[in-house]
Simulated scan of single mutants.
Amino acid sequence: MTTTNQERLGKSGPSVFPIALGCMGMGAGSWYGAGDEAESIATIHEALERGVNILDTGDFYGMGKNELLVGKALQGRRDKALLSVKFGALRGPDGALLGHDTRPAATKNFLAHSLSRLGVDHIDIYRPARLDPHVPIEDTVGAIADMVKAGYVRYIGLSEVGAETIRRAAKVHPICDLQIEYALVSRSVEASIIPALRELGIAMTAYGVLSRGLLTGSKPSGKGDVRAHMPRFVAGNAERNQPLVDALARMAAEKGVSPAQLAIAWVRAKGAAQSVTIVPTMGARTRKQLADTLSSLDVSLDASEVAALEAAVPASEVAGTRYAEAMMATLDSEK
């Protein structure tokens, strides 16, 4: 592999491998359908052996089952991993999303249960999953800062918030990274969010780099695959997006790489071009997917290749928003 150099996760954060492992799709209760726990754990172990150190999860993934799986995988390997955990999303017994709660007391309560499920004494990067419209970001970050002082958290991150919220949060405590969707066909962050990250020395952990598999031609499959209800995959939009998928495949073939490798390489190249550390957070569910993902580090793009790719796969042509309309309306990052 040509690059395994670690990067700093923002000016205040830890040293990290240039790709993170997203664990949301692993194990029971996954939003992408049933997962194989043994293969998931083997994939986490392989990732850690290959130098990947950020493992990303959320306390509401699989109603807590995802944290239990990650905790199981980490036994005897805690020192190799940086645990990135999202909190604040509320779920009913039927799995329904009921909103968010990031009040200081709730924040500390969520943290206590995450530490218990993961079987660890601290979480490396703790972040609210979304902005709670009823709680000032200063209160939430202040509560996490208390937990940093107490030794239960090492670093503070944010997720899906806009430039103004990022600036307000950074005045309370150093923020190491923003987790947000960024892909060839999801580029709204470039207008004001990336400039704010650059100004404040905050990194990005980018998810949705393959637009949930859209860019690689993946289709929703099986019961429980939430993508079946996402705008870019629904009937009509899926057909309208096929030319973008085909264009990416064509350009990847010309370069002798896979569409996934090219899409990941684009995100990393954009980080360098915009002077912001961007760490793609890739949801590999199997060791094979992990190997394919890590091989993207061998792919580099120059400015002319980036421009050609953006012309061939223009974000303005994608049909459908990245989330359903009701969810988009709640995202601080889209305001």
Rank of each mutant, 00 (worst) to 15 (best):
T2E: 11
T4D: 12
N5E: 15
E7Y: 13
R8G: 02
L9F: 06
P14S: 02
V16A: 06
I19N: 14
G22E: 15
G22I: 10
C23I: 01
Y32Q: 11
G33P: 10
A34Y: 10
E37N: 15
I44W: 11
H45Q: 12
A47Y: 09
G51I: 02
N53L: 09
Y61T: 03
G62W: 03
G64Q: 11
N66L: 12
L69P: 06
K72V: 04
D79P: 06
K80R: 14
A81G: 02
K86M: 09
G88F: 11
A89H: 10
L90D: 07
R91C: 00
R91H: 06
G92H: 08
A96S: 15
T102N: 15
R103W: 06
L111C: 01
A112D: 13
A112S: 14
S114C: 09
S116M: 03
G119N: 01
D121M: 10
D124M: 03
D124I: 05
P128T: 06
A129K: 13
R130L: 05
D139S: 09
T140N: 07
G142A: 04
A145R: 13
M147H: 02
I156Q: 01
G157V: 12
G157I: 13
S159G: 08
R167H: 02
H173G: 06
P174T: 08
A183F: 12
L184T: 06
L184C: 08
V185T: 15
S186C: 12
S192Q: 14
P195H: 00
A196N: 10
L197V: 04
L197W: 11
E199W: 01
I202N: 03
S211V: 10
L214A: 03
G217T: 04
K219S: 11
K223I: 12
R227T: 04
H229C: 00
V234F: 06
V234E: 14
V234I: 15
P243E: 12
V245W: 01
A253S: 08
K255Y: 02
S258K: 01
A260D: 08
W266T: 10
A272S: 13
I278E: 01
V279T: 12
P280L: 08
T281W: 05
M282T: 10
G283R: 13
L290V: 01
D292F: 00
L294Y: 05
L294A: 04
L301F: 05
A303F: 09
A308E: 07
A311R: 15
S316K: 14
R322L: 14
A324G: 06
A326V: 14
L331R: 07
K335P: 04
